[in-house]
Amino acid sequence: MTTFFAILFTVATLTLVIGLGLKIAQYARTPAPLKIPTTPAPLTKPGVAFRLAREAVVFESLFKANKPLWIFAALFHFGLAVVLVRHVRYFQTEVGPLVALVQPLALPAGLAMLIGLLLLLGRRLVLERIRYITGRSDILMLVLLLGIAVTGMFMTKHVHTDVVAVKAFFTGLLGFEIRSLPGDPLLVVHLLLVAILMIVFPFSKLLHAPGLFFSPTRNQTDTPREHRHLCDWAAKLEDKRS
């Protein structure tokens, strides 16, 4: 069991890091030949950074679009963010200040995440329009996240696992050393689902996380008259002209 998970997490981590790295490299490498920010748009780079920050942190556009959905999404994402930070403790020998700070929020954050996910799932099943655009993979993704959240919450609240051993396993793994992992069924399921999530990440819609920052409608300055914007392949067309 321990060896299996050691291999699984190594593979999952490599898939996540390399897969994501390749995707980000692809986005960065692909030129944006035209200025297409959705206007009104910021005129300066700090302005663009602020726009992206608003999108990433408070989901500005989603807020304009749909208030209930914004609440559901915020519950899930903020909950997840806190839970992720809290999980850093399983990888640190000394627990950092941020991790310590969010420790008391563990339960509310987990609940927020769970409720958010259930609302998002319910919406997909109940609203006619959303049901129409929902594919099997969209449901599976929510079920996967729900599985992770539920097993995690159960371990926190009811069926405690040996967290010291879990921490030893992961810190050991970071140093390429295999230490034994507890065999509790809940933990096994939890870790298995997390590994699956890590592996599908670069192949799925979860790419929206890095992708947002490459979205030309959001990450460009509105300065086409002031600065001539010319990508490589467009510049080559000009050679033909003269």
């Binding site: 995707k23 692809q26 986005y27 692909t30 030129p31 944006a32 030949p33 297409i36 556009s61 989603l62 679009a65 749909n66 959905l69 999404a73 919406r123 609203l127 329009r129 959303i130 655009i133 929902t134 594919g135 969209d138 819609k205 790419l207 929206h208 992708g211 947002l212 490459f214 979205s215 030309p216 409608t217 392949w233």
Partner: peptide
């Protein structure tokens, strides 16, 4: 086109089907 337009490449990958656009 996917290789020439970042917009297209990114927009192909990142939709989460949230439906915010469905009534717009």
């Amino acid at each position: 086109l996917l290789g020439k337009y970042r917009s297209l490449q990114v927009f192909m990958d990142i939709c989460v089907k949230c439906g915010a656009c469905t009534d717009k």
